[in-house]
């Protein structure tokens, strides 16, 4: 049996997190903790997700909540967005301006 793994590392060149693995029930707590730590003053926040192969709907909900917590016009910028995350954000948080999904 292989439990899902999620690696989370702070970005070195800007505010944010690089993630690799799967965001699901097994890894939800660490995902929410990492997103919860992204509040605070500063610039836009970046999530590097090209190494993420799966995000469930609760994981997407945590992304939307993190974006909503950002203040002062700051945005949560998603890079390498996994398709499942895109589906859930489109379905439940269309037009959430605090999230920017980049094509890269």
């Amino acid at each position: 049996m292989t439990a899902a793994v999620l690696e989370l590392l702070p970005l070195t060149d800007r505010m944010g997190v690089r993630a690799a693995g799967e965001v699901c029930l097994t890894t939800r707590a660490s995902w929410e903790r990492a997103l919860g730590a992204l509040v605070g003053p500063g610039d836009d926040v970046h999530l590097e997700l090209s190494g993420v192969t799966y995000v469930d709907v609760a994981g997407a909900s945590a992304v939307a909540a993190a974006a909503t917590r950002l203040e002062g016009g700051r945005r949560l910028v998603l890079h390498g967005t996994p398709p499942q995350l895109r589906l859930a954000l489109d379905a439940f948080w269309p037009g959430l301006t605090a999230i920017e999904v980049t094509l890269s």
Binding site: V57, A58, S61, A65, T68, L87, A88, A91, F92, W93
Partner: peptide
């Protein structure tokens, strides 16, 4: 769901997909 409710979207997503 309301925009801010944290849970309760799973089965809804299944219906959408």
């Amino acid at each position: 769901p309301s925009r801010d409710q944290p849970n309760g979207r799973g089965l809804l997503m299944v219906h959408y997909l």
